[in-house]
Design a protein around this nucleic acid. Structure first.
Length: 426
RNA sequence: GCGAUCGUAGCUCAGUUGGUUAGAGCGCCGGUUUGUGGUACCGGAGGUCGCGGGUUCGAACCCCGUCGAUCGCCCCA
């Protein structure tokens, strides 16, 4: 026998309860984004490599070693999208969507990063994504965050808190960064090896280091608040007061940062509370939804400066938190307990399905075992079609709790087939 | 890129200090019951013990390598 090929490392075949939970997340997202009037957008799964290398930054790990890149037959370097934002920005610019600004868009689908798989982390993974492009006001941040908050609530996810920070505008950020470098450089020898490297290329990242050696210095590190310009301060206050007015709970996270320079002002992540059920289910992958304002991105793709803010969330991670979502209960099962009744049973099942019932036919294998097989699916209605004493015979059994429209199903069935006189349903 | 743990039937797992022909439950297939509905009874199929090498009279078990999975580190745009 030929060897069965195995799935690519870090890819997954989702089935059963996991697939139902996945679908529940997507369906809920689609419903909520309509409430907020975000427009659906479909994007290519691959782009020219430069879309990502320019938008994300050549030096980041994502671009330097985590992209699935390949040459097509024309010699162009293409890349499977590692995120949504860069592609959406490219589409916004190349399609002239400025005419729709401010534009609220939402999408979901697969993304690809060449990483070592672990809990809640795959090489092909899936995200939901929402962006507001061409809106410079803090109200856009508030609306986007309110939508995220409502989505998580409608998914039934508990014990998750919005961690919020501001990175200030360009000037604030530069001043803060310089102060951080100066502060940490003074204690460089006592920092972890990783953070000694971060000091040069990504000093903000030292703030969320997990290493104890770093953490004892983080508490007294310079705070962004001391470097905010008046405008940046007013912006952040408008965001927080807007969240309060919208009833979105949040907490300040002074160490929450974004490494890339084009991020401005608001940065946020929804993170499970310490010790919560959600935190336990996610392992070390704590953030379930994250985003921020990226006013500087469009320029890196050659567009005019365009303010924008957005977030994304991993569908797999959300699905781990929504609990068991089993398939809907089977409404009607028909067991053809005799080979001579198989055609009629198929006729009946087709009738029920056209009437909008979820119905399943049991007409294969040993006729004697078909009833048992049907019963094990615990249907709302269990119909037997058999031959007894040489004559066609059918039986109707309603089980508790009874399904909606049982009377309608019963009427449709008895219009064609007889049932015993003493039959009761419901 | 680094580390830890784990790979036995379709699934969940047993398998004694290394010792005959590798087991169970579930699932699947078949048979039995003259039956208004059973968690029934009987039987069957299905395994290169991840793969390769080594130690040994003898390996699912010990050793090395390899592939894969899981979890963590790094990273997380």
């Amino acid at each position: 026998m030929a060897k069965t090929p195995q799935a690519i490392r870090g890819t997954q075949d989702i089935f059963g309860a996991d697939a139902e939970a996945f679908a529940f997340v997507v369906e809920t997202f689609e419903r909520v984004r309509r409430l907020y009037r975000f427009r659906r957008v479909e994007m290519p799964v691959f782009e020219k490599t430069e879309v990502f290398s320019r938008a994300i930054g050549e030096t980041t790990d994502v671009v330097s070693k985590e992209m699935y890149s390949f040459e097509d037959r024309g010699g162009d370097s293409l890349t499977l999208r590692p995120e949504f934002t860069a592609g959406i920005a490219r589409a916004f610019l190349s399609n002239g969507w400025q005419q729709h600004a401010p534009l609220k868009v939402a999408t979901h689908g697969p993304l690809f990063r060449y990483e070592r798989p672990q809990k809640g982390r795959y090489r092909q993974f899936h995200q939901i994504d929402a962006e507001i492009i061409g809106a410079a006001e803090p109200q856009a941040d508030v609306e986007l965050l309110a939508m995220a908050d409502q989505l998580l609530k409608e998914l039934g996810i508990e014990g998750v808190t919005l961690h919020l920070n501001t990175l200030g505008d360009g000037d604030s950020r530069e001043a803060w960064r310089a102060a951080l470098v100066e502060y940490f450089r003074a204690v460089k020898d006592e920092l972890s090896e990783d953070s000694q490297e971060r000091l040069e290329k990504n000093p903000l990242r030292i703030l969320d280091s997990k290493d104890r050696r770093d953490q004892k210095f983080v508490a007294d590190a310079p705070k962004i608040d001391d470097f905010l310009t008046e405008e940046a301060k007013a912006f952040f206050e408008a965001v927080t007061s807007g969240l309060d007015a919208a009833g979105v709970k949040w907490q300040r996270a002074e160490s929450l940062v974004r490494g890339l320079d084009y991020y401005r002002h608001t940065a946020f992540e929804f993170i499970p509370d310490e010790g919560s059920e959600a935190a336990g289910k996610l392992g070390s992958q704590s953030t379930i939804l994250g985003g921020g304002r990226y006013d500087g991105l469009m320029e890196s793709l050659g567009g005019t400066p365009t303010p924008a803010v957005g977030w994304a969330a991993g569908i797999e991670r959300l699905a781990m938190l929504v609990g068991d979502k089993t398939q809907d209960r089977l409404e009607i099962a028909i067991a053809a307990e005799h080979r001579d009744r198989e055609a009629e049973a198929a006729q009946a099942i087709a009738m029920f399905r056209r009437l909008g019932f979820q119905a399943e036919l049991f007409a294969s294998g040993s006729p004697r075992k078909r009833f048992d097989k049907a019963r094990k699916t615990e249907p709302g209605i269990l119909i037997s079609m058999d031959v007894r004493d040489g004559k066609p015979f059918q039986n109707w059994q309603g089980t508790y709790p009874e399904i909606d429209r049982e009377a309608e199903a019963h009427a449709a069935f008895t219009a064609v087939w007889e049932l015993p006189d003493d039959d009761h349903y419901g």
